[in-house]
Amino acid sequence: MREHAMKLMNRDVLMKPLNPLAAIATAFLAAGLVVWITGGEPIEAYIALIQGAFGSESGLMNTIRYTLPIVMLGFSFSICDRCGYFNIGQEGQMYAAALMIAGVQVWFSDLPAVAMLPLMILSAIAAGGIICLVPAILKFLFGVNEIIIAMLVNYIIVLLTNYLLMYSSIADTDKTSPMSITILPSISRPVLIILALMIITAYALCLRSSAPGYRLRMVGFNPHFAKASGIDTIKLILIVSFLGGAFSALSASGEILGEYHRIYTGFAANLGFYGMTAALIGSQSTLGLVLGALILGALQSGSVSLSVMTDVPSELVLVVQGFVMLFATISILQRWTRQSV
């Protein structure tokens, strides 16, 4: 019996890193096949991608720049997932956070930048957190499916954002396309990277070694057990849901304050799915999640040089990302089904 169990264990240990890696490798193979069938050179394309993403200092900076928001969204998905809350509302949470940032810019325009910047981030966190709480409250207190709610909330917020970017005091009406006024306080890229590294370290440390992190892991392993042992699971789940939204808000804050300095209509489009994919690749491990985000970020930053250096259109990157998502999801499904047997 023991031997059998040991062997099972070993397989789990083996599968853990292998599974997501295999998913990524398969994704690249499949996308390569697409390139090859359409008459391109897959190897050449991938070399161009890698060179674009890692071959130069500016390319590397770009890769990091695209990676950071995905990491935050990965955290957002991952902690909610541990409580059984499938958080796909990240886009909505990001737009809500961005709107709050713009709102602070309009309402508190007299504040000095040192005060305005933290106020912007805090109100963004509050907005993202509350938006993320709505489906969680409906799910865990009333049994409503959170995925449907999150998708509907997403639509509402995306459309609301589009409206406000055209017809409100945050809209920049001088421009032909809808966008917000300029957000004045900004965070420089090095500071952004340092802040992000601090958040990543704190996240990993808290999850591994803090008492609340322990409780979250126990709820993730077995909510019935956690509850019977005296953990207030509902309270924990609601706090975690707020934090999930807060991470989305941090992602949005980085994008708005560090990169765009304005809100554009589609600035967060699809980012939520990248975060989810990174979390699935990482499967419970923080390092894995960051690496997963790095791959997705590298694809985005490499896509520019892809179209410059080869005949392969930069849309190939979308194909690869799609395949990564697909196979990462499959590998997760496999694990779930094996656990349930």
């Binding site: 322990y214 892991r217 126990m218 392993f221 077995n222 019935h224 057990f225 956690a226 042992s229 005296g230």
Partner: peptide, 15 residues
């Protein structure tokens, strides 16, 4: 309700 099967002994005894 008795154990978290995927957690280790340490984690199970302090819950």
């Amino acid at each position: 309700t008795g154990l978290a099967l995927n957690a280790n002994m340490d984690e199970n005894v302090i819950c």
